[in-house]
């Protein structure tokens, strides 16, 4: 019996495989190159082809795990949780993914006029929102118990969401903080880094000692800090970097002058 989770991820495997083949041939792959993973010929654009093949392999692996251990199987889940099976007219859980899809579409529209990067960001938002939306819709109809459905959905998506969100968060923090630190003077960069580190340490200390009471306070401060970091990063990026002494350029130009001088002399 094929589980719903297997069907979903195996479908994704098929879609990614087809996309990889199309992309491979469209970007200059030879006759059997994209089919043989490059063993008998070129695959076209290596990066795009590689990403798509990797996604296909990951989807295939997840689908096999799901069918082997009967994970994300709605009937098994319903039996374990004592639910009454699948409701014919299930309640639809609330969520913000449709809103995210709408914002993504709006961002893409604005990006068509402003900048291709903004357009790409909008498209990425739309695709991510649609994937999450699909999973939510699937989970809504998995069993007759909303709590079991949410659990089921989290079992499938949390292993994907948490690393992606974590990577995005780290990327945003690193990018924004680096923009700020290279925009202010060298002295202020040290001060900012010290103060922020101290604040993080103090917040973690408070949270560790009083986890229950300080939770809302820490959450609020975290939101404020994240917004401040992002806004500060954007402002710093707009302002630009401070003046750095360009030692390497000078060395290169000096050595270039010497070389050209030597060349002239030799000629």
């Amino acid at each position: 019996m094929l589980t719903p989770g297997f069907k979903l991820f195996f479908g994704m495997f098929a879609a990614f495989t087809a996309a990889a083949l199309v992309y491979g041939y469209a970007s200059g792959g030879s006759h059997v190159g994209p089919i043989s993973l490059g063993w008998k010929g070129g695959v076209g654009d290596h990066i795009g082809y590689g990403v798509l093949v990797s996604l296909a392999a990951a989807s295939l692996a997840v689908s096999l795990v799901l069918v082997a251990f009967r994970d994300a199987d709605s009937e098994a889940q319903a039996a374990l949780s004592g639910a009454d099976g699948i409701s014919p007219n299930p309640a639809v859980a609330s969520g913000f993914w449709p809103v995210a899809a709408a914002f993504g579409a709006g961002t893409a529209a604005v990006g068509l006029v402003l900048h291709p990067l903004v357009f790409g960001l909008g498209l990425v938002m739309v695709v991510l929102a649609l994937v999450e939306w699909t999973m939510d819709a699937w989970a809504d109809r998995a069993t007759g118990d909303p709590a079991a459905n949410r659990e089921l959905r989290n079992r499938v998506m949390a292993p994907v969401e948490i690393p992606i969100v974590g990577a995005l968060a780290v990327g945003v923090v690193v990018l924004a903080a680096s923009r700020i630190l290279i925009a202010v003077s060298a002295l202020w960069a040290v001060v900012v880094a010290g103060v922020v580190s101290t604040l993080i340490l103090a917040g973690a200390f408070v949270y560790a000692t009083r986890p229950g009471q300080a939770r809302k306070l820490i959450a609020g401060l975290g939101v404020v800090a994240a917004l401040g970091l992002v806004v500060g990063g954007v402002l710093a990026a707009v302002t630009g970097e401070r003046d750095f002494p360009h030692h390497e350029d000078e060395i290169h130009s000096e050595s270039g002058a010497e070389e050209s001088g030597a060349g002239d002399g030799g000629g």
């Binding site: 009967r70 994970d71 098994a76 949780s81 909303p146 709590a147 949410r150 292993p159």
Partner: peptide, 21 residues
């Protein structure tokens, strides 16, 4: 990751999460 390792009572109200207000 396998749910067969989980206790049958694992699904609780908390898992469903509170509705936003």
């Amino acid at each position: 990751m396998t749910m067969t390792d989980s206790a049958p009572v694992a699904v609780t109200e908390a898992a469903a999460g509170p509705e936003p207000a």
